[in-house]
Design a protein around this nucleic acid. Structure first.
Lengths: 125, 125
DNA sequence: GCGATTCTACTACATATGTAGAAGCTGTCA
DNA sequence: TGACAGCTTCTACATATGTAGTAGAATCGC
């Protein structure tokens, strides 16, 4: 499932808490985004068509909830990036991150921890 | 500098070795891509307009070379992804990778190494 | 009950992206 | 010296994406 930039914004707002109405989503969008209400509705319709969200009616107002999980969306975004920009390999991608980003000691600690404990398959939101 | 999917393909081929002609680039594209020669030329023109590559003439044939480095392209792609999908934080992105990807022991070793040795700023292609 | 407000469903439209055809140049090889 | 092959420049066009207006239905506040 491939999301566009604008769609990520909507989904991010929806994942924050759902079911949600278009209005609620609008209110949760980052402050620097100023879309017309109808723009948001349009995005939601498109996301519904894509089966990324499910729309239902509460009374005669639409409420939305994600079908696509954040985790899955992240996963496929990372996969695309890896393929596109890192020859499909996650290893180099990670290396790049490690080398490129100056990590705080705490972050390093965390990562070491994560590495040691192996696959700690955690949050399943 | 934001590249589209098709542009990544072209750039990947160009980074492989340059200066290169459109024909050479065409020959280097992954086997599953079958674009008309003119499609490639179009992409190269667009990339030139974007200042991602520089076109010059050798005789009367165009040769191309990257202006945008692979490393920079990767960097900004990662940054976009982090912003879009991981609230701008690389830490969680990395965690996600670690948790989601089953790494081989060797990969883990490598990463541990990379973590320990800190910023080993390597390849500067 | 009625005006103000809010939704919903449709439609619209510019720009971006993927993909390529057409026509004209040029070099090459018989 | 002409036919062919490969290159160049232009133009075209469908689909995707970002962004929103309009009109009519529903709802809220008094």
């Amino acid at each position: 499932m491939k999301l566009t930039e604008a769609e990520w914004q909507i989904m991010n707002a929806l994942w924050e808490n759902w079911p949600a109405t278009a209005r609620q989503i609008a209110d949760r969008l980052p402050g620097d985004i100023k879309w017309a209400y109808t723009t948001i509705k349009t995005m939601l319709t498109r996301l519904t068509d894509k089966n990324a969200v499910k729309e239902s009616k509460k009374g005669n107002v639409a409420v939305y909830e994600p079908i696509l999980t954040r985790q899955n969306a992240q996963r496929s975004a990372l996969k695309s990036l890896a393929n596109q920009a890192f020859d499909g390999a996650f290893g180099p991608l990670m290396h790049f991150l490690l080398e490129d980003q100056k990590l705080s000691d705490k972050q390093k600690e965390d990562l070491l921890q994560a590495l040691k404990t192996g696959e700690q398959k955690g949050e399943q939101e």
